[in-house]
Design a protein around this nucleic acid. Sequence first.
DNA 1: TTATCTGCAAAGTATTTGCATAATG
DNA 2: CATTATGCAAATACTTTGCAGATAA
Lengths: 129, 129
Amino acid sequence: MQRMTRQRAAVLELLSDQGEFRSAHQIHESLTARGQAIGLATVYRTLQGLAEVGEIDVLRRDGETTFRRCERRAHHHHLVCRQCGLTVELQGDLVERWARELADLNGFVEVEHTLEFSGLCANCAKGGS
Amino acid sequence: MQRMTRQRAAVLELLSDQGEFRSAHQIHESLTARGQAIGLATVYRTLQGLAEVGEIDVLRRDGETTFRRCERRAHHHHLVCRQCGLTVELQGDLVERWARELADLNGFVEVEHTLEFSGLCANCAKGGS
DNA sequence: TTATCTGCAAAGTATTTGCATAATG
DNA sequence: CATTATGCAAATACTTTGCAGATAA
């Protein structure tokens, strides 16, 4: 049903390398930079297909959709500098616990969540390099 | 700074009538249907202004942004049923506290966050109407 | 009066789709 | 070889912006 093409393999490999959520545009750019010829439309179609099969995670951010290869590793959150992109991986599961509590309290099931922090890192805050 | 124009009043009134989250397009359509002449661009600009002042809540759904008048002025989060759109406003500021803590810990400033929970409400979970 | 707001249309993004060609299983 | 995927460009969907004229305070 889903054929393994050069492009599909390239997208999967890229997503494995970059553990983070990336937009279709970023993925296309990275692949092109690596010398992998691939159309933007194909990137979109491939990502859509991979998401349907559950190979990758989808996250809506601002106005765009981002994708990441699913890992068994526990999900976590990020603190991102909105100027330079510096990213800190956060620990702690208080949101996860809150989610569970909310599910019980409101009769919801399969409760998922998205959480992200953004700010200015120390360097960028003081005029940064 | 923000002038009360006929259009602004109309948007506010509509949002008060319809308690649920509505997209700019839906709002524009409803107003036009009511005989209120207003440009789509104005709807967007007005909604943006109202959101900045905290008069309305913003929620990103699929590819579009939706708005709803909120009773509670303080910023808060939502638990949304991904099938029927039922929305519960959440209370508690544990994420806000966490954000403050993270800022200190990592030397970030102006830390903002986005958090949203989605799941299936009781009704939809059992096959719902 | 004058700073702000409005409408329109044009410009931007992000994403999807039609179709002829290429490549997979 | 029969499908399914690809690339391109054109098409969509949503949102923002430039600007001249209108309007609230």
